[in-house]
């Protein structure tokens, strides 16, 4: 069973010519089939955790370890992490002009699966996945994220999640900027992947709203660069009612 283990992770980022520590010792274990929600106020370091796990060059790991099934993730390049089974659905997906969605998806699937998918089944697979996400077929011919609305970008991220079938999916504020209909469609996509039981999900969010659609097994409260409280789904209800104040007031958060 695939397991992502994060131990005492410390991460800095360069800001104003100085190294600033953003993550201050994160411990978390995500197993295949589990869904963990990470909730926290703005600036608590949630997105830094997501991008550090994916290997974004902006972040420097200064301590701790991350392993996927015992393999050292921090030693891997960004593309190696993806091929090892890590997937990051980004909060702000990047436009890639000149590269069509269909070409991008096929290149990505070829890289992650280790061989080019057979054309006929692949076309069918993409078409069906797009239909499930209410995406128009013309979408495939557009350039990656270019001119996409906020909802289209997020559906495109979840389309990739469905096609690439990672071991661990990190969803970085996938719910932000979505209206209720789009949120429902995107959540259904995530749930289809979860129901296979083959993915561990790390759901990073600021709001409890998405948790009505995607039921987490564990909820962690993130504040000032570390997990400050963990619990079951009921912890989300507490946050819904009380907000983050209890965690930020007088805390280490700046």
């Amino acid at each position: 069973m695939a397991t992502l283990e994060i131990r005492d992770l410390h991460v800095t980022v360069e800001a104003d010519n100085a190294e600033k520590e953003i993550l201050k010792g994160v411990d978390l274990t995500v197993k295949q089939g589990e869904t963990h929600a990470i909730m926290g106020p703005n600036g608590s370091g949630k997105s830094t955790l997501a991008y550090s796990l994916a290997g974004h060059p902006k972040y420097t790991i200064t301590g701790g370890s991350v392993t996927l099934d015992g393999e050292d993730v921090l030693e891997m390049s960004v593309d190696e992490r993806a091929r090892a089974g890590l997937f990051l659905a980004m909060q702000y997906p990047v436009e890639v002009p000149g590269v069509s969605v269909s070409n991008f998806l096929r290149t990505s699937a070829t890289a992650v699966r280790g061989e080019a998918p057979k054309l006929r089944t692949w076309v069918k697979e993409v078409k069906e996945a797009m239909e499930r996400l209410n995406m128009d077929p013309s979408f495939a011919e557009r350039n990656v994220n270019e001119g996409f609305s906020g909802g289209e970008k997020k559906r495109h991220e979840i389309l990739q999640l469905e096609l690439l079938k990672p071991k661990v999916a990190i969803l970085d504020e996938t719910d932000s900027g979505l209206d209720v209909d789009a949120l429902r469609i995107v959540s259904e996509g995530v749930n289809r992947v979860r129901e296979t039981g083959e993915v561990g999900t790390l759901l990073i969010t600021h709001y409890t709203r998405i948790l009505r659609y995607i039921k987490p097994d564990y909820v962690h409260v993130f504040s000032a660069g570390r997990i400050v409280e963990s619990g079951g789904a009921e912890l989300a209800d507490k946050l819904e009612n009380e907000g983050y104040e209890a965690y930020t007031k007088g805390g280490a958060s700046e």
């Binding site: 390049s77 593309d79 091929r83 990051l88 990047v94 436009e95 000149g98 991008f104 290149t107 990505s108």
Partner: peptide, 27 residues
Amino acid sequence: DEQLFYLMARGIPEHEARRLVVRGFFA
């Protein structure tokens, strides 16, 4: 670097990512 990161985060190796973008640009 952000485009490169996005493509690599989908498993595409760096040289392949550059090729994809430039071929697409000229295609």
